[in-house]
Amino acid sequence: MPELPEVEVSRLGISPHIENKLITAIRVHDARLRWPVPEAVQQVTQQRLISVKRRAKYLLLETAAGTLILHLGMSGKLRVVPASTTLKKHDHIEIEFEHGQVLRLNDPRRFGALLFHDQSQSPINAHELLARLGPEPLTDEFTANYLFNCSRGRKQAIKTFIMDNHVVVGVGNIYANEALFKAGINPKRQAGKVSKARYQQLVPLIKQTLQEAIAQGGTTLRDFTNVDGSPGYFAQQLMVYGRGGKRCMQCQSELKEIRLGQRSTVYCTQCQR
């Protein structure tokens, strides 16, 4: 599944090609996505795209008439191509612009989404998909004090705690594994028993791990390629994720792989306490 860095890379990839351009048509070739694509998305036709923003893993395409909410789901990919380009299998949605380019959503598993929010009725952050989300991890709102205070009394594992989108958005499985390893924190430790000092170590490492992934084009996943078709390269630097049974890069102990919150979790029993 594309995680926050992959979605941010997609945003950075498409924005220069479509921002400030007039939307001339929206073609829905298959409306059967995670939620049926509503007819209301047509309200942005003949509107100029003001900006492409990201909130958690949602891309927000803002116009004066309202905002399109786009989610890549499990396998979604975005491409900006000439309108004359032959459709590929699973190209479910096209947003055409005045300069003859189209933004296409290709989604084999159809877990993605395209929705419409009327900002004249309520601000975009009030939308039911966005209203209860935690802060963005790369903003000043996400601090060690904030995370420490949220964790008090929490018995859940620290890994599932930092992956909770109500606590902080976008710290997906790959990046939770990596940040906890760098901070030397056992992913099974109860969040409420992690000290403030350790949260002061962890938060900057979460930010650093995400920033490095974005800078390098996102993590290479089986179902993800960048807008220009090139894969990300961050996977080459993963220290624990996907390396269960291999040697720890720090101490040479064998890395242990378990399941936490139904997700693969890899850690070093020697380096992480």
Rank of each mutant, 00 (worst) to 15 (best):
P2D: 08
E3P: 04
L4P: 12
L4N: 07
L4G: 09
E6T: 09
S10K: 07
S10W: 02
R11Q: 10
G13H: 07
I18Q: 01
I23E: 15
I23M: 05
T24C: 12
T24N: 13
I26N: 13
R27N: 07
R27Q: 11
V28L: 14
A31H: 15
L33G: 12
R34M: 12
P36F: 05
P36Q: 07
V37Q: 03
V37W: 03
V41E: 02
Q43M: 12
Q43N: 14
V44Q: 03
Q46T: 06
Q46Y: 12
Q46N: 15
Q47F: 14
S51M: 06
R54V: 09
R55Y: 15
T63I: 12
A64F: 06
G66Y: 09
G66P: 09
G66Q: 04
L68P: 04
I69E: 01
H71S: 11
L78G: 08
T85C: 07
L87H: 09
K89I: 03
D91K: 04
I93A: 00
I93S: 09
I95K: 00
F97L: 01
H99Y: 05
H99G: 04
G100F: 10
G100V: 08
Q101R: 10
L103I: 03
D107C: 09
D107Q: 15
R109P: 10
R110C: 06
F111P: 05
F111Q: 05
F111C: 14
G112F: 04
L114C: 01
F116V: 08
H117K: 03
H117L: 03
D118C: 03
D118E: 11
S120L: 11
P123W: 00
I124D: 10
I124S: 00
A126E: 05
L129F: 11
L129P: 00
L130K: 01
A131R: 05
A131Y: 01
L133I: 05
E136Q: 06
P137K: 07
D140G: 13
N149L: 09
C150A: 13
R154W: 01
K159N: 01
F161K: 08
H166D: 14
V168Q: 06
V171G: 11
G172N: 05
N173W: 14
N177D: 15
E178L: 03
F181A: 07
F181I: 02
G184D: 10
P187V: 06
R189M: 02
A191W: 01
A191D: 06
V194K: 02
A197T: 15
A197Q: 14
V203A: 06
V203K: 11
K207Q: 14
Q208A: 12
T209C: 13
T209P: 02
Q211C: 00
Q211T: 15
I214L: 02
A215L: 13
G218C: 07
T220G: 02
L221I: 13
F224W: 13
D228W: 08
S230T: 15
P231M: 13
P231S: 05
M239L: 14
G242A: 12
R243C: 08
G245V: 04
K246G: 08
K246N: 06
K246T: 15
R247Y: 03
L255N: 06
K256W: 00
E257I: 00
I258P: 09
R259E: 11
T265N: 05
V266S: 05
Y267Q: 01
R273L: 11
